[in-house]
Each structure stands twice: as C-alpha cells, then as structure tokens.
Design a protein around this nucleic acid. Structure first.
Length: 421
RNA sequence: CGGGGUGUAGCAUAAUGGUAGUGUACGCGGUUUGGGACCGUGUGGCCCGGGUUCGAUUCCCGGCUCCCCGACCA
C-alpha cells in the first residue's frame, strides 16, 4: 500500500487523555481511534494487525477441530433468566436496551447461553458429540471503569470457543488440546516466553480455571511465577494449601504484574442442564452435555504486544502480526529516475507476495524515518539516490536496529514470506 | 460505585473578571532534502446549563466528559 493513500496520519504527541503505552502509541501511529472511554475503532493499519492475530488464532483452533460461526450481539432476556444471569444483582455489566414494544434485550457479554440453545437444535445423540464451535465477536461489558487503553474496554473483540462433550473425560481431553493451542498462539504472536499458564479460581465444576498471563508492568493482575516449572498462580488462589496441592515451592514463586490474555474453563453441565441440552447415550439414557469455554481477546492481545515489545521510538511488531512485512522508504523521489527505481522495487516486492507499505510521500527523510519507527513494521528498506548508485538495499530490522546491505536478489529472496504449511 | 483531578483550535499547551498567546498540524509562496528543516503568510479555539457581575473562558452551583486511585472483573 502507498502511504500517500493512507488516510491516517501519525502524531508527534500523545493525546493527553491516554496514559497507557498501548493507547498512546496505537493512536499516535494511526492504528486506532478513540471513540469514548474504553471504546476504540480500528483503522486500516490496526485492522491489518487484528486480522493477522485472528488468523493465527483461527489456524490453531481449526487444528483442534473448532468450527467458526458468528452469533448475535442482541440477546434475549428470557434465555438468560434460565441460567439466572440476567438480573443486574447477579451480573452487573450488562448493557440493556429494549424493542419499540418494550421487550427487554441485552448486548452480549459472553455466549454460553445462546450457543447452548443453538446446540439443542442439533445435538440429540451421542453420535452428535463432541462438537467444538467458536466465533470472533464484539462483546459489550458495562465496566464501571475502563482503563489501560485497548486492554480493558466496554466493547472489545473476543474469540470465544466452547466444547460440547459427552462427559468429563472427553471434555478434559479437548481442554488439554486447547491449552496446547493457546501456547502455540502466544508463541506465534511473539510473547510465548513471557506468557504463563496460571492457576486461577475455578467455577462450579472445578477448583481451578487456567489463565494465560503475560508478564508486564501494564498488567492489572498479580501472579506468582515459578520460572523453572513455567507455571504461575493468580493472587486469588495464592494460599499455602493451593501451593502445596500443586506441588510448588513457595520460595520459588516470584510476584509479577501481568495481563490476562486468555483463559480456559471447565463448565460441566452448568449451562446444559438449565437450558436442556442433553443427548441420548448408547444405553438410551438422557444425559446432559458436558461443556467448557475458552476465551481469548484479539484486541487485548494487540495491546499486550505493544506494551511488551515497543521501545522508546515506537511500536515493534513481530513479523507474524505486523500490518506489513516491509516498510519501503523512498527518498529523493522528486528525481524521476529515483522514483521510477523505487516504484520498480515496490512492484517487484508486491508481485512476489511481500506485503509492503511504500512511503512515497513528499516529506523529508527525517519524518519518514521517525514515522517508520513509530509504525513498527519489521523490515525497513530504504531506496534513495545513494542506494541506487551503490546498487544495494539498506535493510534495517526494527526490533534490533541491525542494518544489512543486500543486493536486489538477496532482497527478494529474504523477504518473500515462507509458505505456511 | 467511593475518592481525587480534568475540560481552551485537529493535536499539545499558556495566560486572563474586560472575548485569548505559543508549538504542532493544515492552506499559500519561497529556500531546503539520509533522522520530525527554515523564512514569510493565512485559516482555525474557551464542554453544557444556571447563578454572581456593568461584563464570566476565568468566580460559584449543577450536569456531562475524560483521566487517576480503590472497589468490581467468565
């Protein structure tokens, strides 16, 4: 894409109403636009990152058999009353609205109820199980206090996956697979090393749930990490009894602030029983379906990547989620010969399948470099009178600052993305 | 929800009981061109409602907004 066509612009200064690093940088670089407290729009650059994150999640969930769908944001009161999750005294984060005729509706906070009801239409025999369904959808939660930029909003994107299993053992097997899928996801987006599977308080059907917590000072959670074993405990379950039960040594646990980037839950029959989701087993008995739920917020994950990986110059995206692979910075473009040359490189890279943001704007070099650092694309390729005359390409890696001088052939070979299997 | 702040141009800020200045961004002219250049010039602004006052952007009250601390957080 030509930068001259991009409708967003960078800003030198951070907005005064944002204190979190993720919001300041994402707004300055033109990835997001703040609509109101805790509500952000995703602009062209931001959407590209978000879609890359979603695609990674999709690939890993599909690998475990998940089927993608999309449910509605509008929710029916009667459905949620069946599980006693409608009343404000029970769930106080609903955004509620109504039809013209006065019928109350809510904007979805999560989707166990509607999906369970949907499944009652399709699951009736043990032959229909197990099933795994998920979606990416905006959730609405009327938080009393939005904070931390895009990491704790009132409207945010969530990937929510649910499993419908015959029994606890079958559910547990899927649960384990999803734990693995989540590890792969956090690995692929570049925060595998700083993300820990963390024991947290469970629900009705299990003593613990597990959270994926990424160590960061921007986090709202406190966890206790055993780095040797690669596991952690949330503060909410940090007691001597739990530590002993999990076979951990209190002296090895280090307190850290962290961001909850995902969680996985055992639901048991908490939803299937009240909503009547049951199946007939081999012996002809009616049995409630055994469930689990698995959440992961792509928008929060995007904010986390900025928090964890950015430096003093701006954002640093991992290659896997960056909006473009190469930032082609053209200098001396007022010289028609240089411009033709730069255009040639742009089209050569593009036709080879490399995603390129081509800075063809008529602004000074310093501004281009500063913007390039801020936007955070992994590889910057500079094309100028100088590089043309020398016949080389100057490639700067955003993450490390390393500079490489490559020939044209090396450039094409190095930056063609490896085919995904 | 409790407490504390905040609100001035697209953005960031200053001053002020007598209608507001700067930087940046934006328009125009010119000099520049490998790390946010410079000169000239122009456009553009006091959150909403009420009160006090001859006069309110400024003081007072209320509302709203946004931020922070805490509480809350499948």
């Amino acid at each position: 894409m030509r930068q001259s066509h991009l409708f967003t612009k960078t800003r030198k200064e951070a907005p005064s109403d944002e204190t979190s690093k993720n919001a300041q940088l994402l707004i300055r670089a033109g990835y997001v636009y703040k609509e109101m407290a805790g509500v952000y729009s995703y602009l062209p650059l931001g959407l590209r990152v978000l879609e890359n994150i979603k695609q990674i999640i999709r690939e890993e969930i599909h690998r475990e058999g998940g089927q993608e769908m999309v449910m509605t944001a509008l929710q029916e009161k009667e459905l949620w009353e069946q599980t006693d999750r409608w009343d404000d005294s029970v769930v106080d984060i609903w955004f509620k609205t109504e039809l013209k005729n006065g019928t109350e509706l809510g904007l979805g906070i999560t989707h166990e109820e509607p999906l369970t009801r949907i499944m009652t239409s399709y699951i009736s025999s043990y032959r229909d199980l197990p099933q795994y369904a998920y979606q990416f959808q905006n959730k609405f939660r009327n938080e009393t206090r939005a904070k931390s930029g895009i990491m704790r909003g009132r409207e945010f994107l969530m990937k929510d996956l649910y499993d419908f299993s015959k029994n606890e053992a079958e559910h547990n097997e899927f649960y384990e697979r999803i734990r693995g899928a989540y590890k792969r996801i956090f690995e692929r987006v570049g925060i595998g090393d700083s993300t820990y599977v963390t024991f947290a308080s469970g629900g009705i059907f299990s003593e613990f749930s597990e959270e994926f917590q990424t160590v960061s000072d921007a986090g709202e959670d406190l966890i206790y990490v055993d780095e040797e074993k690669g596991v952690a405990l949330n503060k909410e379950v940090y007691t001597d009894a739990v530590i002993e039960k999990l076979g951990l040594d209190k002296s090895a646990l280090v307190e850290k602030k962290s961001i909850e980037v995902g969680n996985i839950f055992h639901l048991g029959t908490k939803f299937s029983e009240p909503l009547g989701l049951q199946y007939t087993d081999e012996a002809g008995n009616k049995v409630p379906v055994y469930m689990g739920s698995y959440g992961l917020g792509p928008t929060r994950l995007m904010g986390t990547l900025v928090e964890v990986l950015a430096d003093e110059k701006g954002i640093v995206w991992p290659e896997s989620v960056a909006p473009f692979r190469v930032h082609l910075v053209g200098l001396n473009l007022d010289d028609a010969e240089i411009r033709d040359y730069a255009e040639g490189i742009y089209s050569a890279l593009t036709t080879r399948g490399v995603t390129v943001l081509y800075d063809d704007r008529d602004v000074r070099p310093g501004e281009k470099f500063a913007d390039s650092d801020l936007i955070g694309i992994p590889y910057r390729v500079v094309v100028s009178r100088k590089t043309k005359s020398e016949g080389i390409f100057e490639v700067v890696e955003r993450a490390t600052g390393e500079v490489h001088s490559l020939s044209e052939e090396e450039l094409y070979q190095k930056y063609i993305p490896e085919a995904e299997e």
